[in-house]
Write a protein that binds this DNA or RNA. Structure first.
Length: 151
DNA sequence: GCCAACGTTGGC
DNA sequence: GCCAACGTTGGC
């Protein structure tokens, strides 16, 4: 099993919105970064995901989800009406992919980025080191440390 | 293939 | 709203 972190802007789509989806499952559409896309294509059903709230009052980990469908072409890239539309992506040659994730758990309080940043054991975490990546792997050690210290 | 210009992310 | 850190684009 692998561990991941996925960012979302709660004003657009929060972990509560994920909970409220049918079966608490949502397509994770709109990722338009190659590195993030490549990580999504590595995801397996059952992989664990931290849901991270960005661009908000207290950015941080808001809860947990699970991959429930492996990567498939992102339909919003084909939709001219979508803000995620990309004319360079076609169903014959899709450029962007998404996975489905299912809600698992919402934290009572967000684990703030500032807390994670100040933890020496998390100083190598990609979230801390790489500012602008919306989908990224989390190591098993980081995952366990966060589970045992901040939940 | 280099790199300047431009666009985006996202913390603060 | 500012701006640093990147990623992307496109001329050459």
């Amino acid at each position: 099993m692998n561990y991941w972190l996925m960012k979302t802007e709660p004003d657009t789509f929060s972990i509560e919105d994920l909970l409220n989806c049918p079966q608490s499952i949502s397509m994770w559409e709109g990722v338009r970064n190659y590195q993030a896309r490549n990580f999504m294509r590595e995801m397996k059903v059952g992989d664990r995901v931290m849901i991270y709230h960005s661009s908000c009052a207290v950015p941080g980990i808001a809860g947990f989800a699970e991959v429930c469908r492996t990567a498939y072409p992102d339909p919003t890239a084909f939709d001219p009406e979508s803000s995620y539309y990309d004319p360079k992506s076609s169903s014959e040659k899709p450029r962007w992919f998404c996975v489905d994730v299912q809600w698992r758990f919402t934290l009572d309080e967000v684990i703030p980025l500032s807390t994670l940043k100040s933890d020496p054991l998390l100083s190598d975490m990609l979230l801390v080191k790489r500012n602008r990546l919306s989908v990224m792997p989390v190591t098993a050690a980081e995952w366990k440390h966060i589970q045992s210290h901040y939940l």
